[in-house]
Computed example of a mutant assay.
Amino acid sequence: MFDTVVVLSGGMDSAVLLADCVDKGQTCVAISFDYGSKHNACELPMAKALCDTLGVTHTLVPLPFINDLFDSSLLQSGDEVPDGAYDSENMKSTVVPFRNGIMLSIAAGYAESVGASRVVLASHAGDHAIYPDCRPEFNQALGQAINLGTDGQVTIAFPFAHLDKRDIGDLGRTLGVDFSATWTCYKGGHAHCGTCGACDERKYALRHTDGLDPTTYLK
């Protein structure tokens, strides 16, 4: 039996969240989603490898309909991911409509099925302005709906909701997370591009200018 379902993308935030849950003695299972993003092929193997390292059961759920039906530059079916700063005007094309609502709903059903009482997601304060399904009011409303829809058996939590990405990077460093085994770049090439907004944010989070970032960037 498990007590916590961790939504794990293979990115640095969810990797730190999983490591933190394990460090706190929680019995975890991780769930990942292949929804057709440009970088799924890069990050999902890292999610699986992290689970293997930590001894955590990993489940992968394919969601091909998102790439087929939804409009976002983050998806393989979408336009090019923009370069530039991680701000709302530049990154709004990467919004995948209601992605977190869909994933959290599935994770909640999975949690109820395996007897876990909690689902956790690593959305953070830096996401709020850009992604509507990362904002506190959305999290609160969905959390209430999931708790009602599972007859009080499952709650959802967002432990990093008040942290920015650098705070998460610093926490991961104290937990010994290998950030070279996580993926962030939205373009999904053979290495991090170093120029998209996600890479820009990763550099900030991992203190790239201080020489603490182990990531290889193309630029």
Results as ranks from 00 to 15, higher is better:
Ala107Ile: 07
Gly172Ala: 12
Thr57Ala: 14
Gly84Gln: 08
Tyr110Pro: 02
Gly143Ala: 06
Gly143Arg: 01
Asp151His: 14
Ser72Phe: 03
Arg207Lys: 14
Ile130Lys: 03
Ala198Cys: 11
Leu75Arg: 00
Arg99Ser: 07
Ala145Glu: 04
Ser88Gly: 08
Glu201Trp: 12
Asn100Leu: 05
Ser37Lys: 02
Ala161Tyr: 04
Leu206Ser: 05
Ala116Thr: 11
Gln153Gly: 06
Gly194Met: 08
Ile31Gly: 03
Cys21Val: 10
Ala125Gly: 09
Ala157Glu: 13
Asn100Ser: 08
Pro136Ala: 07
Asp68Pro: 10
Ala129Lys: 04
Leu69Phe: 04
Pro64Ala: 12
Asp213Gln: 12
Ser88Gln: 14
Ala107His: 00
Thr182Gln: 06
Leu54Lys: 07
Tyr86Gln: 04
Gly109Thr: 13
Lys219Gly: 11
Asp200Val: 15
Ser88Tyr: 05
Ile156Ala: 03
His192Gly: 00
Leu171Cys: 08
Val56Ile: 09
Tyr217Arg: 07
His190Thr: 13
Pro159Lys: 01
Lys38Ser: 03
Arg99Trp: 00
Pro159His: 06
Phe2Met: 08
Tyr131Asn: 04
Gly55Pro: 07
Ser37Thr: 11
Thr4Val: 15
Val5Glu: 02
Asn90Thr: 14
Cys193Gly: 01
Leu212Tyr: 10
Pro45Gly: 10
Leu17His: 04
Val56His: 00
Ile130Leu: 12
Gly11Ile: 12
Val7Ile: 15
Arg99His: 00
Tyr204Asp: 05
Ile102Met: 03
Asn147Trp: 03
Leu142Asn: 07
His190Lys: 12
Ala191Asp: 09
Phe98Gly: 07
Gln153Phe: 05
Asp133Trp: 00
Cys21Ala: 14
Cys28Thr: 08
Ala41Asn: 09
Pro62Tyr: 03
Ile102Gln: 00
Thr195Tyr: 07
Glu137Asp: 06
Thr182Leu: 12
Leu44Asp: 10
Asp68Glu: 15
Asp210Ser: 10
Val177Gln: 01
Ala49Phe: 06
Cys196Val: 08
Ala205Asn: 07
Pro136Phe: 05
Asp79Tyr: 09
Gly143Val: 06
Ser32Tyr: 05
Lys48Tyr: 08
Ile156Met: 04
His208Asn: 09
Leu54Thr: 11
Leu69Pro: 00
Asp200Cys: 13
Leu206Ile: 13
Val56Ala: 01
Thr27Glu: 09
Leu218Gly: 04
Thr27Lys: 13
Phe138Glu: 01
Lys165Trp: 03
Thr209Asn: 11
Pro136Trp: 01
Gly84Pro: 06
Arg99Ala: 02
Gly143Ser: 04
Phe158His: 02
Lys48Arg: 15
Arg118Gln: 13
Ser113Ile: 14
Leu163Val: 11
Ile168Gly: 04
Arg118Ala: 05
Val96Asp: 05
Cys42Gln: 12
Lys92Ser: 06
Leu18Ser: 08
Thr182Val: 14
Ser180Ile: 14
Leu50Trp: 00
Cys28Ala: 10
Asp13Leu: 09
Gln26Asp: 10
Asp127Pro: 03
Val56Tyr: 08
Lys48Glu: 15
Asp20Tyr: 02
His208Glu: 12
Arg207Pro: 11
Thr94Tyr: 01
Lys48Ile: 14
Lys187Leu: 06
Ala129Pro: 00
Met12Gln: 12
Gly109Ile: 15
Pro136Glu: 03
Ala85Ile: 14
Arg166Ile: 10
Gly211Asp: 09
Val154Asp: 01
Asn67Cys: 15
His124Met: 13
Ala108Pro: 05
Asp200Tyr: 14
